[in-house]
Amino acid sequence: MTDAIRVLVADDHPLFRQGVVNALGAEQGFSVVGEAGCGEEALSMAQDLLPDVLLLDISMPGWSGFATAEKVATACPATAIVMLTVSDDHDNLLAAFKAGARAYVLKGVSPRKLADVLRSVVAGEVYVSPPLASGMLVSLTRDKAPDPLQELTEREREILSLIGTGLTNREIGERIFLSEKTIKHYVSNILQKLQVRSRVEAALLAKGNTR
C-alpha cells in the first residue's frame, strides 16, 4: 500500500479552504496535514510539515501567492506547489510557474480532477487547466529568455553540472548531501526552466552554452 499524499492547503477564505479539505478527505490516498490562511503561515507550516503538495491561492493578505510560492520552492524544493485560483490571467499563470509552481488549476474544478492533478504533480508532471494551456505555450515561446540557463538558481546550476557528468539522482544527492527525492524535484524544475524533455537534453544545452 502506498503512502498517502500529504497536502497543505493555503487559502484566506475559511469556507472555501474547508471545502477543499473535505473534498480531498473524500478521495482515497490523501491526507491534509495542515491549513494556512496567509503566505507567511504557509511557509512556516511547509517548513515544519514538509508536505508533498502545497495548494496555494494567489490572492491572500500579506505575501501574494507568487511570493509565497517562491519562498516555499526555495525552502522546501521537494514540495510540489499547485496554484488553485479564480484567475485565468496569462500573466498570473506565467508568474506562478516562474515562482516555482508545478500546476495551475482554476477554482471550480471537480474534486476528482483536483485529486488527479495532485497525483500527477507528485509523480513529477506539470499541469495547466486546459482553457489556459494554449495561451501559456504561445507566451512561453514569445518570452523565452535568450539564455535559459540564466533562469537557474545557483543550486540548480550545480545539479545540472553534476547531471552532465553522468551521475544519477542518488549519486548527486550523496555528493551534495540532499535526498534522492529532493534531487528529483530539482531536476524537474531544471527541465521545466530549460524547456527540455530529458536530462540528456539539459546536459547538452548546458555544454553548448559553455563553449
Score class of each variant (00 low, 15 high):
29 G>R: 02
29 G>Q: 04
29 G>W: 01
30 F>R: 11
30 F>A: 08
31 S>V: 06
31 S>P: 02
31 S>I: 02
31 S>W: 07
32 V>Q: 12
32 V>G: 10
33 V>Y: 09
33 V>E: 10
33 V>W: 11
35 E>W: 12
35 E>M: 12
35 E>T: 15
36 A>H: 07
37 G>F: 01
38 C>L: 07
38 C>R: 12
38 C>W: 04
38 C>E: 14
38 C>V: 01
39 G>P: 14
39 G>N: 08
40 E>N: 10
40 E>W: 00
41 E>D: 15
41 E>I: 03
42 A>C: 05
42 A>H: 09
42 A>Y: 04
43 L>W: 03
44 S>E: 15
45 M>E: 14
46 A>V: 03
47 Q>I: 13
48 D>Y: 05
48 D>S: 14
50 L>M: 09
50 L>S: 07
50 L>K: 12
50 L>F: 00
51 P>A: 06
52 D>C: 07
52 D>P: 04
52 D>S: 09
53 V>C: 05
53 V>M: 02
54 L>Q: 06
56 L>Y: 05
57 D>K: 08
57 D>I: 00
57 D>S: 04
58 I>E: 02
59 S>D: 13
61 P>S: 07
61 P>C: 03
62 G>V: 01
62 G>K: 03
63 W>R: 11
64 S>V: 10
64 S>G: 15
64 S>Y: 09
65 G>S: 07
65 G>C: 04
68 T>G: 04
68 T>P: 04
68 T>S: 04
68 T>I: 01
69 A>S: 12
69 A>P: 01
70 E>L: 06
70 E>P: 08
71 K>W: 03
71 K>S: 13
72 V>R: 05
72 V>S: 10
72 V>L: 08
72 V>I: 11
73 A>V: 04
73 A>F: 06
73 A>N: 13
73 A>E: 08
73 A>C: 14
74 T>W: 11
74 T>P: 00
74 T>S: 12
75 A>Y: 00
75 A>Q: 03
75 A>K: 05
76 C>F: 10
76 C>Q: 10
77 P>A: 00
77 P>E: 02
78 A>G: 08
79 T>P: 06
79 T>F: 07
79 T>G: 11
80 A>C: 15
80 A>P: 00
81 I>Q: 01
83 M>Q: 10
84 L>K: 10
84 L>V: 13
85 T>H: 03
86 V>D: 09
86 V>G: 08
87 S>P: 05
88 D>W: 00
89 D>W: 06
89 D>S: 10
90 H>V: 15
91 D>I: 13
92 N>L: 09
92 N>A: 11
92 N>I: 02
92 N>M: 14
94 L>Y: 07
96 A>M: 01
96 A>W: 01
97 F>A: 03
98 K>E: 15
98 K>T: 15
98 K>S: 15
100 G>T: 01
